[in-house]
């Protein structure tokens, strides 16, 4: 189960409204390479993982992705909350605004609602972990793209944190895949 802690994993305090940027950043809330996709991918794949290491890793990274989902939702909300109707109308956030107002909805930056087709579960640990490696890199690319178009230091500071997490998760998934393929799992530890 999960316990909710009433805090963000990384602080978000955005001073300037920017509905255009909100329309881009929402890609990491409900888009195919976003945090919802990541958390559901790992938390669903973990049931068929073969050993203690991969069960733990997918649970822990999947849980961290839920914290990242909350961070991205907070960025979208803070960017949109104080934007004027006129600013919104003249930005790419306008079409989103018709259905969702200044709220946070899991869609990609084209307005397409979240789709579980963005993730896979094969129950083959090598296939699943290889997908996870690619997923971390694709998420990193989206954060790179946000950094290319954003000049808001309050947003970029948080996006850089999230981008770094993709790289660390990629590293850990790589180690897990290597251990499974080469059977380097130490005989330990969890057994009686």
């Amino acid at each position: 189960m999960w316990n909710y802690q009433k805090k963000l994993q990384y602080p978000v305090n955005i001073k300037n409204p920017n509905p255009k940027l909100a329309a881009y950043v929402v890609a990491q809330y409900g888009g195919p390479n976003g945090e919802l996709s990541a958390s559901l991918r790992y938390l669903s794949q973990r049931y068929s993982m073969p050993d203690a290491m991969t069960k733990a890793l997918l649970t822990d990274i999947g849980t961290e992705e839920l914290a990242h989902l909350e961070i991205v939702g907070t960025i979208v909300r803070q960017l949109a909350k104080c934007a004027s109707d006129e600013e919104i109308e003249n930005s790419p956030f306008g079409a989103y605004f018709m259905n969702h107002g200044r709220g946070v909805y899991p869609a990609n930056s084209n307005g397409m609602p979240f789709d579980a087709l963005a993730l896979a579960v094969t129950s083959d640990p090598i296939a699943d972990l290889t997908e996870d490696l690619a997923a971390e890199q694709k998420a990193r690319v989206v954060y790179d793209n946000i950094l290319k178009v954003s000049d808001d230091p309050d947003v970029n500071d948080v996006v850089k944190f999230l981008r770094q997490r993709e790289i660390v998760h990629f590293q850990r998934f790589g180690e897990a895949l290597d251990q499974i393929q080469n059977r380097r799992l130490p005989k330990m530890y969890c057994g009686k």
Partner: peptide, 23 residues
């Protein structure tokens, strides 16, 4: 709150490292 986030982050980071280096 920022202090908590910093230490909780360090805890999480060691947690993920230890998942793949449990000994």
């Amino acid at each position: 709150l920022n202090q908590i986030s910093a230490y909780a982050f360090a805890e999480k980071e060691w947690n993920l490292y230890l998942d793949t280096h449990p000994t």
